[in-house]
Each structure stands twice: as C-alpha cells, then as structure tokens.
Amino acid sequence: MAVITVERKPLTFLERTYLPQIAGGLKTTLKHLVAPKKTLEYPEQRPAIPTGYRGVPTLVMDPNGREKCVSCQLCEFVCPPKAIRITPGEIPADQPDRAHVEKGPKAFDIDMLRCIYCGLCQEVCPEEAIFLQNQFSMSGYSREEMVNHKDRLYELGGTLPDAHFKWDKKKAAEEHGNAH
C-alpha cells in the first residue's frame, strides 16, 4: 500500500494566537443567533411522519370492522423483548361472519415498556393484523397503564384497507366451492 506523506504545515503566528479562529467562530454563531429556528415546539407542532414510520404497534380491523388477528402468536414468538402476550381463544359459532376463522385472541397485550418498536411483529404477521402506525408518544402513570390491551390496540389501530379478504374467500369456497 502506498503511503502518502502529508506535510503538516506549521501554524502561522496569527493561528497560534487562536484569535482569527475565535473571530470566525463568533461570526458563525452570530449568524445562527439570527437564523430561523430549526426545532419544533413539540406538543403544538407535530413532526411530519414519514411513510414506513414505526410507531406504536396496533391491531387493525378489516374494512368490515372484523378482527383480523387469529392469535397465531407468531408476533409473540418473534418479539425480541417479549413485549407481546396473547391468550388464544376459539371464536364462538354465534358469529356467522367470523366463526369460520375458528381462532382469535381472547386477550392481546403489548407491554409498551418492553416494546422496542422493531416492527418484527408487523413483518411476521401472516394475517396483516398488526401494524406499527404513526402514534409515537405513549405515556402513563403506572406500569399497568403502559400495557396496551386488546381494546386499546384496536382503538389505536382502527381499520386499514385489505387487499386479500383471505377468510372471506375461504368462506365463499366453503359455501360454493369444490365440495363433494
């Protein structure tokens, strides 16, 4: 490897007094003193959230307002800080539009004191039911308050458009499909 020797120039007298540099620095800071402010005044002014932002994980419903999560617990499995805790349950037969899904979460808790906003839960979800959306500010007065339960998760998540309607198709196939 070629070695390039760079001549280190000795400092001039003025440079050794620091004074021109100090003056230059003062000039720079003076410019900033009058420059427009770059910060946001947070609670009133909110930053623009870029697309793909990973905020608080939420559960979303399909456009028909039905729960998408089937409590497969893959997010619970993949969650690095073990923030997600799901109690799976069976969907009772008295929900005609959902009974064919068979399984849904009885309880779904995300401990926001543990969550690291990595988005692996969203990535792993086979039902596109969990999304890290724009909400970035979570606070509470107790540890319990910092655990998002199922109701809160759906409240935060709302409804997102669905491209698949996987289970509706399944039900249609069940009713009109290739039955014997």
Binding site: E174, G177, A179
Partner: peptide, 9 residues
Amino acid sequence: EDKNVKPKR
C-alpha cells in the same frame, strides 16, 4: 383451480 372443500371442525 378451486381447492376441495371437506368437513372441518
């Protein structure tokens, strides 16, 4: 094609 439908549950 459509998948077969068989009894479930």
